[in-house]
Design a protein around this nucleic acid. Structure first.
Length: 246
DNA sequence: ATTCATGTTGTGAT
DNA sequence: TATCACAACATGAA
């Protein structure tokens, strides 16, 4: 469940532990998990794909990567990476990456970079993008320093919605389209969140994991692209390349 | 049974 | 020193 909107759902579910004291700790993480025992959760926050449990003086950062999952007041066969028991319930995290962040979260994170945060700053995103004009838009959208929370599904859907070929370069996008990409990264993330909450996300995918263009009916191109070679779905007819090929 | 995917970090080579 | 390709990790659906 790892893109930004899924972490919002996780955060909302775990908010009930804010103000509660950790009574019992378990898990197979190599971290010193017992550090949290007896400590009070002073905040349940998130930044992009990072889920954050804030204690006084430090925080736990959980990243679900590709296969991570969580359960509240429930268990599954696997050993939890971390299990926290509170007076009002238990939080179990599986197959995730855990890390402690020392000091204040406001020092560690720039909330303006999280596409789903109230502090999200589209102008700042534009400034960052202008510094890397040669980067492909399919990479730019996945760059967590610019679009924290955006993942591969959101990338594919946003590029189709704004009708931009994934191999376009950031610098070649007309300013209006660049602005649209930045705006849609946020807007679509919230749309994703609503659909996910209703369990209807998949059926609303326009190109991700699809074979046919919903716009022109043509065959979608499916290709591994970008520096990380991520699955990319697009329509060569409806999503023009910038700059246009010679 | 095998492949692959909503992701990131660390390693060793260049 | 810096960059880069690849390995590693971990789970479940198709």
């Amino acid at each position: 469940m790892p893109e930004g909107p899924s972490i919002i759902i996780m955060r909302e579910a775990a908010t009930r532990f804010r103000g509660k004291t950790v009574r019992e700790v378990d898990g197979n993480s190599k971290l010193d998990l017992q550090r949290m025992r007896g400590r009070k959760v002073v905040g349940v926050r998130s930044w992009g794909k990072h889920f954050l449990l804030e204690f006084r003086g430090f925080s736990l950062r959980a990243h679900l990567l590709l296969f991570g999952s969580w359960l509240i007041d429930a268990e599954k066969a696997a050993t939890p990476r971390l299990s926290l028991r509170f007076d009002n319930g238990t939080l179990n995290l599986y197959a995730c990456s855990l890390k402690y962040i020392e000091g204040a979260l406001d020092e560690a994170y720039d909330w303006r970079g999280d596409v789903m945060a109230p502090e999200w700053d589209p102008k700042l995103a534009r400034t960052k993008l202008k510094r890397q004009p040669e980067v492909l838009v399919c990479d730019a959208l996945l760059h967590q320093d610019v679009f924290a929370g955006v993942g591969n599904i959101i990338k594919n859907e946003v590029l189709f919605r704004i009708r931009v070929h994934p191999a376009s370069t950031v610098g070649a996008l007309p300013p209006r389209l660049l602005g649209k990409m930045i705006k849609d990264a946020r807007d679509y993330s919230f749309q994703f969140l609503e659909w996910k909450k209703q369990y209807v996300l998949r059926q609303h995918w326009l190109v991700h994991n699809k074979g046919q263009c919903p716009n022109c009916g043509g065959k979608l191109t499916r290709q591994h692209m970008g520096t990380r070679n991520r699955r990319t779905f697009f329509c060569v007819r409806c999503q023009p390349l910038y700059p246009p090929p010679a």
